[in-house]
Design a binder for these strands. Sequence first.
DNA 1: TACATTTGCCAACAAGCGTTGACCAACGTC
DNA 2: GACGTTGGTCAACGCTTGTTGGCAAATGTA
Lengths: 191, 191
Amino acid sequence: MTTEVPTGPRRSDATRAAILEAARERFAADGYERATIRAIARDAGIDPSMVMRYYGNKEGLFAAASEFDLRLPELGALPSRHAGAVLVSHFLDRWEQDDVLMALLRAAVTHDAAAERARSIFRDQLGPVAVALCPDPAEAPRRAALIASQILGMALARYVLRLPPAVEMTREEIVGWLAPTVQRYLTEERP
Amino acid sequence: MTTEVPTGPRRSDATRAAILEAARERFAADGYERATIRAIARDAGIDPSMVMRYYGNKEGLFAAASEFDLRLPELGALPSRHAGAVLVSHFLDRWEQDDVLMALLRAAVTHDAAAERARSIFRDQLGPVAVALCPDPAEAPRRAALIASQILGMALARYVLRLPPAVEMTREEIVGWLAPTVQRYLTEERP
DNA sequence: TACATTTGCCAACAAGCGTTGACCAACGTC
DNA sequence: GACGTTGGTCAACGCTTGTTGGCAAATGTA
């Protein structure tokens, strides 16, 4: 719970933003430990000590850089039989247009705070979608975890491990294969 | 290609094995960069310099510690409609009984050599299974990658990120949900 | 103009890292 | 029993890391 003091725009806002952007790129490319404060500062064109002044320490910098909104679409509007395809397609978009998911995944594998952040994102943002669409709300967390497993797995294979066949597939092919899976995890009765 | 000089058992074999075991545990628990040679040596009860003597450097130690055989069962024997369930069940076994898959995953996310090792394991060991069972052999690599995405994703969710619903599911529930997915990726005609 | 705050750089710290080479003890072989 | 080989420890190296505190310039305020 951060106490929100209504502070106006500061002269240093551009620097703060540059640091955050560099941090997101480095965390995404290198993971938590190999993304050094010195390298981030170099990318941002400032001194490493500025990072400490504005974000306290490396942990605080990561916390600030890894805030994330999945921007999941409202699925109530369209027929629920298309939910799987919409979800898969949307996740591919988010993965390719924003570094934060990659930073989160790369860091979460070796860094506890990042893993906790990932857990809370899936719980708080994907969870409600499952509650709204799956047959038994009590089962929603399980459904959400199954969906997360397939989507995270494809992201891992395609963007991190770069398994050649996963890289070579088109977006449409991926949606074609994964959408029925996600659809089933979301809406089908228990197996 | 290692030239296989037929060398007999050495007095140091126990030490070498202790180093490898400690290395596997540390790489599995901490990933590549946080698993330090000093910590591995401490776990093995020897001096860090021994690690260097026996494995050259950290890279060589990881290469030795991450050799892995998926031990995929012969699937030709049983009806191919059960292949999905057998595969999922077998992967869960391998994941829970051997540290190496965890070490490989944790390291591959931030370390190129580990990612290459992971790619080659899936290509050389899972690939042939797909060739044998999927309708069009030319499509086998893609099928194998899809299967890898679902299985890696569940491993990531359950064993690495520890999403609570994924941790709480029983083995049987996971097989029940994932087997149809893997089965479809393996044998179903193109969507 | 005088002063306080903010923004930034610089130099250094202590700790930890992978890695090296000298050295000693135990062993196997003649 | 002498001796080369092997298994092991110890102390140190050069380097990088996160982090700190001091100082200078720019900016805002009276």
